[in-house]
Design a protein around this nucleic acid. Structure first.
Length: 474
RNA sequence: GUGACUAUCGUUCAAUGGUAGGACAAUGGUUUGUGGUACCAUGAAUCAGGGUUCGAUUCCCUGUAGUCACCCCA
C-alpha cells in the first residue's frame, strides 16, 4: 500500500526559509554547472532523504508477506533436504563474467561493478548461482555425499530501469543441487519449485520447460536458426533485425505478428539436440507426467545466462487480463563448476523472484503471515503504578503472556482506547490504590466485567480468562 | 539504455495565476480512575532547482522519483 514513498529532496527544517529568502542571483551560476546531476552531488549540508532509484524499504506493513515467504521457503528447503548457505553480496567481477557470460545483458549492462580501495574489481551479485558455485569449489564440497543441496535467500542487484515488480535491489530464493546428472533431479527441482508456489497460495501458475542441449548442439542450432532468419531478413521487424546480430534466439519470442508467423516454421532447438540431451529431456518429461505437474513445453524458452545446459524452465503467473509475470526460473548447468576450475560436477537449480511473488500474493489476495497478537493490555495510572507496571510487564512476559502497553500515555481513558483498538481480551489496570496494596484490576474487555486480584494470583487469573475465551470461540 | 505519462498532508481525493480544502489515520479533550459510537480541538502537504509573471502550487525548462511500453529479466 505504501508504494509511493517518493518525497523527493528534503532539507532538514530549513525548507521553508530557503524558499522565502529568494537568492536567485546565486543560483544562476549553479545552473550551468548542473548538467546531468548525479544525485550524490548535493552539497554536504543537504541530506538527501531518498532511497536510491530502484531500491526500497520493506516497511513493517509489508513484513507479514515476507515472513510468510521466508517460512515457506525454509520449510520447503528442509523437506527436500537443502541446507542453508549464505555467500557474500560482493564477488570478483570475473566470477560473474565467466559463469553468466560476458556477452549477456546481465553482465554487459546490468551489473553494479566497482573497484575497491585495494584495486580489486568487484561486483554486487546479479544472481546467486555463481557465488554458490564458487563456495562449493572453494570449500571442497565436492567430497560431500551427492547430491549436495544448497539453499539461500537474499538480495541481488541489477542496474535496470525500474518498474512494478522490477527493482535494482530485489530478493531471490535460490535452490541448487550439485553432483547428480540424472533427469529425475530435474523433475524434483521443478516439483520443489511447484511446491513452494503452491504453499504460498498462488494460483494460475504455469511451468514452461525446454531443453537447450549442450554448448555444441546449441551452437549448431543457433547457426541453423540464423541461416533461416537471415534468409527472411526483409520480413522481420526492425527490432528483430537488430536481434539477428545481438541475440538471434530472441527473435523467437518477438511479439510482432509478422515475426511470430515467420518463426513458427523456424528450426526448433529440440531438433538439434544431441542424443544424450534428447534422451535426458524425454525422461524428464516422463517424470513430470508421473508427478502430474502442470507444464508446457516452450521450445522458444531461452534463458539469459550462458551457463545453462539441457533443461531450462520458468515459472509464470498470469492475471485476469492474461498478462504474464515471470516469477522465477532455472535449469541445469552441468558445465559451470568445471568451467570455474572445479572438478566436473553436474548441477541444477532455480531462483525465485521474491518481490514478484509477494506482488502476486497481494494481487491474488493471499493471506500474509500473522504474528500472534497480544491479548492483554497493561494500563497504569500514577507514578507509583507506572514504576510497578514495568516490573509487572516483564513478569507477565516471562510467563508467556504476550501483552501490549502504552506507558507513555497518562489518562486511563486514552489507554483503554488503545487497548480497545488493539482488540485485546483483557486489560490489567494498576492505579495508585492498586500499586499500594499490590493488587491489580482485571477487566474483561468483551463482557466489561472486572475483578481485583493480588499480584500473586495475577498470572493465573489472566490465563484463566484467556482460556475460557478460547473455549468460547472454539 | 530508449520513449511516454505522472508527482498536493502519513494515506487518499479536491482546488486555484493571488500562498491550498475534505476524508481516513494521528494526538489531545468532552469535570480530573474506565474502551468501542458521537462531538470538539490540534498538528500535518503543493518532489527539487531555475525561468516567465506584479504574483505560481497552477504555465515553461531541467533534474529526481514512480508507473507503463521497449530492451531484458526475477
Amino acid at each position: 500500500m505504501a508504494q509511493k514513498m517518493k518525497k523527493g529532496v528534503v532539507r532538514d527544517s530549513k525548507k521553508k526559509t530557503t524558499k522565502k529568502t529568494d537568492v536567485s542571483k546565486v543560483s544562476v551560476t549553479k545552473k550551468t554547472a548542473v548538467k546531468k546531476t548525479p544525485v550524490a552531488n548535493v552539497s554536504q549540508e543537504e541530506v538527501l532523504l531518498q532511497a536510491l532509484r530502484g531500491m526500497r524499504d520493506i516497511l513493517p506493513d509489508e513484513q507479514p508477506y515476507w515472513e510468510r515467504v521466508r517460512k515457506v521457503l525454509s520449510h520447503a528447503a528442509q523437506e527436500y533436504g537443502f541446507q542453508r548457505i549464505d555467500t557474500p553480496l560482493v564477488e570478483f567481477v570475473h566470477l560473474f563474467t565467466r559463469s553468466i557470460g560476458n556477452q549477456t545483458d546481465i553482465v554487459e549492462k546490468e551489473m553494479y561493478t566497482f573497484q575497491t580501495r585495494g584495486g580489486d574489481k568487484v561486483a554486487l551479485r546479479p544472481e546467486f548461482t555463481a557465488g554458490i558455485a564458487r563456495a562449493f569449489i572453494e570449500h571442497g564440497m565436492g567430497v560431500l555425499p551427492k547430491p549436495v543441496k544448497l539453499f539461500s535467500v537474499g538480495p541481488v542487484y541489477r542496474y535496470d530501469r525500474p518498474q512494478e515488480g522490477r527493482y535494482r535491489e530485489f530478493w531471490q530464493g535460490n535452490f541448487d543441487m550439485f553432483g547428480e546428472s540424472d533427469p529425475i533431479l530435474d523433475a524434483q527441482t521443478i516439483q520443489l519449485a511447484y511446491r513452494v508456489v503452491q504453499q504460498l497460495g498462488l494460483k494460475n501458475i504455469e511451468f514452461q520447460v525446454n531443453s537447450i542441449g549442450v554448448p555444441d548442439s546449441r551452437r549448431e542450432y543457433t547457426k541453423a536458426l540464423l541461416r533461416y532468419l537471415e534468409a527472411q531478413r526483409g520480413k522481420l521487424c526492425q527490432n528483430c533485425r537488430d536481434r539477428l546480430v545481438t541475440n538471434p534466439m530472441r527473435v523467437l519470442d518477438c511479439k510482432e505478428d509478422k515475426c511470430i508467423q515467420l518463426t513458427t516454421h523456424a528450426p526448433q532447438s529440440l531438433d538439434y539436440l544431441d542424443q544424450e540431451s534428447r534422451d535426458h529431456f524425454k525422461r524428464l518429461l516422463e517424470y513430470l507426467d508421473e508427478l502430474e505437474l502442470p507444464y508446457t513445453i516452450n521450445t522458444r524458452l531461452v534463458r539469459g545466462l550462458d551457463y545453462y545446459t539441457k533443461t531450462v524452465f520458468e515459472i509464470w503467473s498470469s492475471d485476469k487480463e492474461g498478462k504474464k509475470y515471470s516469477l522465477g526460473g532455472g535449469g541445469r548447468y552441468d558445465g559451470l563448476i568445471e568451467s570455474l576450475g572445479g572438478e566436473p560436477t553436474p548441477a541444477i537449480g532455480f531462483g525465485l523472484g521474491l518481490d514478484r511473488i509477494i506482488l502476486e500474493m497481494k494481487r491474488t489476495q493471499v493471506k500474509p503471515y500473522q504474528e500472534a497478537k497480544p491479548k492483554v493490555f497493561l494500563a497504569q495510572l500514577g507514578d507509583m503504578a507506572k514504576k510497578k507496571s514495568l516490573r509487572l510487564f516483564s513478569e507477565l512476559e516471562k510467563n508467556g503472556i504476550l501483552l501490549a502497553e502504552s506507558f507513555g500515555r497518562g489518562s486511563l481513558k486514552s489507554q483503554l482506547r488503545v487497548a480497545n483498538r488493539l482488540g485485546v481480551e483483557v486489560t490489567i489496570i494498576v492505579g495508585q490504590k492498586e500499586a499500594l496494596d499490590d493488587t491489580a484490576i482485571l477487566k474483561d474487555m468483551v463482557s466489561g466485567t472486572q475483578e481485583t486480584v493480588t499480584h500473586e494470583r495475577l498470572v493465573d487469573a489472566v490465563k484463566k480468562i484467556l482460556k475460557s475465551n478460547q473455549l468460547l470461540q472454539g
